[in-house]
Design a protein around this nucleic acid. Structure first.
Lengths: 251, 251
DNA sequence: GCGCGTTGATTTGTCATATCTATCTTACTT
DNA sequence: AAGTAAGATAGATATGACAAATCAACGCGC
């Protein structure tokens, strides 16, 4: 318990631990703890105190507190004197935070999550397409067209299928000219990236270009209803695929 | 620049400043700075350094850093050595964070924001109602019914109109049994609270009970299509009201 | 014995200071 | 003129001390 021992402890053992936290200690810790919470490591055990966290990760209490504060801001934790730091129920997690979403998808993949994901998309994206048909600028129309072109190129092997698909859907969201819809950018990207390793396993090959083109054409023609229906069909297909096959994918 | 002056500064002037930060210094600072950013106070001026923020608010640097870290977690700020702390563009703000939303609505009310808000609702809530028709438990159906009952009571002056309306819409979201839809709880509550002081000014009195009852009936009868359409009509009305009158409300 | 206040321990909250590290600027050298 | 090295700046990290809040156990008086 003398100074020398603690000096050695801080100088040697944790230094290896700290390499796993990445360049920035606070952000590294945010990632490690956030992932652990989402996986469920603390479901039936008491969350450690600040001092314990700091000691276990070999960092100062200041760094620990900053990481905890960030997790609090994302809704995963709450802290009170004497009571300690506790994990909040999932209902208060900010699922639209890209970090939280990332942690969820990375290690806790499930068909159920994917279904919930696409149930949201089937609400958002058709409406975004409808808005885009009404309000998209020429530039934004061109961006959607470019996404479509990339999908065609990918079909021929000249581009990445997933990246092209994402570019198309993101362009539609951007063209809605509504900041709330634009927020779903990252979410749709994650959903597609996750979907692809699931749906491609069932339906031979991926997203039908013709269905995407229908969305694009409707938007260019300012056909709001048409755009909504076309997009709805597109995602509805994915959703029924998931619903039909639900449950045979574990990781 | 001597110790005595700074001691006085810390002991007297900022102590009054600190009373305005509420019980918890970090959360108080989070609120003050977050609100200032959202209002646009730093739009054309450089964001202060940590040391400056700490001095101006009369708190320690540790508290300042924790507040900044929380704002970073919400997407409002980013920090790098030597460059300083900078305000992020609105596109990276997490609009679904209840704090951010609160700051936006409180001081920067605009018809445009309200329209964007309800454009999102018209995507989310009809789909939530459709899901609820398929998957709601009896308890959840009862909760929706209770919300409707409260609206009827409010009509007779026996309950609060706004609270009843919120209870109904939140119950539908909960009944969707999809965690992503449930996240919109706070958002819908904010939207309604903001809407009411706008729409009530136009249309004599508020939400038609019959339209809400149609949603409830469809959900109980497991009529997914009917629930979607009924809810869509409900919010579509609000949206057209906003669109028609757009621009004549300033605060 | 029972109720109630008091004390003590625990954990987060806050402060002050020192040092480190990354990064941009400036000036100097070749 | 180009490249490199020294300096300055601002966030990043560590440490130690104390304050405030809260819960539990203890002990006191009735």
């Amino acid at each position: 318990m003398n100074k020398k021992v603690s000096a050695i402890t801080i100088a040697t053992l944790p230094s290896e631990m700290r390499t796993s936290l990445g360049r920035n200690l606070t952000y590294g810790m945010l990632d490690v703890i956030g992932r652990a919470i989402v996986i469920g490591d603390y479901d039936n055990v008491a969350f450690p105190t600040e001092a314990e966290l700091a000691r276990k990760h070999g960092v100062s209490r200041a760094v620990t507190r900053e990481a905890v504060k960030m997790l609090t801001a994302k809704g995963l934790l709450s802290a009170r004197p004497r009571q300690g730091t506790i994990v909040q129920p999932q209902t208060s997690w900010n699922l639209f935070d890209s970090d939280v979403l990332h942690w969820l998808l990375e290690r806790k993949f499930s068909v159920e999550l994917l279904r919930h994901f696409n149930q949201l998309r089937v609400a958002i994206e058709p409406e975004a397409a409808a808005l885009a048909a009404l309000e998209a600028t020429l530039d934004e129309q061109a961006a959607i067209g470019a996404g479509l072109a990339r999908m065609v190129a990918a079909e021929a092997g000249a581009d990445d299928t997933l990246a092209a698909d994402i570019a198309f859907h993101v362009a539609v969201l951007e063209a809605s000219r509504n900041p709330f819809y634009k927020q779903f950018r990252g979410m749709v990207a994650s959903a597609l990236a996750t979907s692809i390793r699931f749906t491609n396993r069932i339906k031979g090959r991926s997203a039908s270009i013709e269905d995407h083109r229908a969305v694009y054409d409707a938007i260019v023609k300012h056909d709001s209803e048409g755009a909504r229906n076309a997009m709805r069909g597109l995602i509805g297909d994915v959703l029924s695929l998931i619903g039909a096959a639900g449950g045979d994918v574990t990781g």
